Amino acid sequence: MGQVLSKARDLLYDCKEITQRLRAMLQSADEQVRSLKKQSTFLSQLAAKTIPNGIHCLSMRLTIDYYLLSPEKRKFPNSENLENPDLYHYALFSDNVLAASVVVNSTIMNAKNENRLLWKLGTLPPGLLTFYKLTHPLDKSWHVLGLGYNPTVERSEIDNAAVIHYNGNMKPWLEIAMTKYRPYWTKYINYEHPYIHGCKFSQ
């Protein structure tokens, strides 16, 4: 009987020790998960803020080719139209030349009256429309947000929107982009263009 009680006591202590070890392992695993989540957040933000090689290449090639032009050829054609009140003027903000070209291409390809289009680069907060110092919020159904972070945006919302916005970290030009929304972007890129092809952009 003494042996049985001794074994039972030893097993009881083993259970307590195992419980303590399991708690320690669980706490350690929780700390690792928290640390990995922080690392993941940091890396996704870093990826979103880093300029991809292709965009850097494109910017450099355009800049070099521009400065290799003679001063006469550097002038913008039809610059007198920049302040022509008979034309529509749009503001476009971006430090990403590829993103700017996609916006311009999509607007021109979807325009109903191409003769009245003129682009003017400037700044405009997302989701706002500015006319002569008056700023108005855009109607939500007209301007769909979230294609850079929200995987639940419905295709019908996108198809019915006049403007789609890739806000968030998963921009369509990054490898971390949401693939289901990427075609809305890539259809406005001419992958056969020598600059795009030379900078190794892939569909």
Rank of each mutant, 00 (worst) to 15 (best):
L68A: 06
H143T: 02
F76H: 03
P151L: 05
N150W: 02
A111P: 12
K112Q: 12
K49C: 04
A48V: 00
T41F: 09
S40C: 13
D86Q: 13
E83R: 08
H56L: 14
R61P: 00
P77L: 04
L58V: 09
Q45E: 15
P137A: 14
T50A: 13
Q39R: 11
V33D: 02
V153P: 02
A47F: 00
D65W: 00
Y88S: 14
C57R: 08
K73P: 00
V97E: 09
S94P: 07
N96I: 02
Y132T: 11
V33K: 10
L82Y: 08
A47W: 01
Y132H: 12
T50C: 06
S40T: 14
Y149I: 02
D95R: 06
I64S: 01
W142G: 01
S106D: 10
L129H: 12
T152P: 02
D65M: 11
Y149M: 04
L145C: 07
A111W: 08
L92N: 08
I108K: 06
W142A: 10
L147P: 05
N96G: 05
E114H: 14
T50E: 14
L129W: 05
L121V: 11
L138T: 10
D86E: 15
L87A: 04
L68W: 01
I108M: 09
L118S: 07
L129E: 14
D95I: 01
V97I: 13
Y132I: 04
K49N: 15
T41N: 12
L117C: 09
S101N: 14
L36N: 11
A111Q: 08
P71D: 09
L98K: 04
P85N: 07
Y90S: 08
A99F: 02
L82P: 00
G127L: 04
K73I: 02
K73G: 01
I108Y: 13
P77Y: 08
V97G: 03
N110L: 12
L62E: 04
Y132V: 02
A100N: 06
Y90A: 05
H56G: 06
T50V: 13
N84S: 14
H89R: 14
L147S: 03
L117M: 13
F42E: 14
I55H: 02
L43N: 12
T123H: 08
M109D: 14
Q45M: 13
G127N: 08
R61Y: 01
L98N: 03
N150T: 04
E154H: 06
P137D: 09
V33E: 11
P71V: 09
E154Q: 12
L145E: 15
E80P: 01
S44G: 00
N53I: 01
N105E: 15
S44E: 07
P126A: 09
T41M: 05
L43T: 06
